[in-house]
Amino acid sequence: MFEAKLIQGNLIKKIMEGLKDLVTEANFDLSPGGVSLQAMDSSHVALVALMLRGDAFENYRCDRPRSIGMNLVNLSKVLKCAGNDDTMTLKADDTQNNITLVFESQAEDKYAEVQMELMDIDSEHLGIPDNTYDAIVKMPSAQFSQIVKDLSSIGDTVTVSVTKDGITFSTSGDVGTAHITCKQNTSMEKEADHTTVNLEHPVTLTFALRYFVTFAKSTSLSHQMSISLSKELPVMVEYAMGDMGHIRFYLAPKIDD
């Protein structure tokens, strides 16, 4: 038996916002430690890794590790039945091929129960090493979102360059070229507004911009996000959900043919 209750049920809605344009179906790995997911996009260029710790839930019970396959388009439809302030309980009986989602209003005056069929999904699991990155930049997630949206109307690829002075996003297209630099800035009162650059070595990599726009759909999960870069390795774009877990996106850089 698997059962887990989230007081802030809309966390799952926010997570789905960031996932559904990248992955249409995925296996959720349920274990006593929590819920995780790893999936590649259809073109196998990007990878998403989600981790929600068991203690992020109000009641968490997982009797045995199990993978449950879900169509994320259908899951997003089901989640429309949940109010933004509703609690959300997920239940999956080991002997059944479905999952039950229960949405309850905080005042306990509305109760919705939806059952959704599970599916068998063949998925390839990749081992992601704990890299030491050449550069890690933390910045407000809204700012990152705005930058990649703005640049995507100018070009298709973005060159990300980190030096001790800051992080520069560059693109070019028919319109012209654009460079946006964010310098390290820790003068604001709120830490969530800070931009910090942790640099081992300067690094410059080029990526398909549309993926960054998709990653930025997780902006509502966290005020801060981080970009971790190493020469000739996939970038890691992370949205941490406090001590509840994280969603991490990996994207292969474009390399010289």
């Binding site: 990878l47 699991h125 996939p234 990996y250 292969a252 010289d256 043919d257």
Partner: peptide, 14 residues
Amino acid sequence: PKGQPPISSFFARA
């Protein structure tokens, strides 16, 4: 020109 390698070429299968 820059090519786009698959993500699996960077991470080994688990």
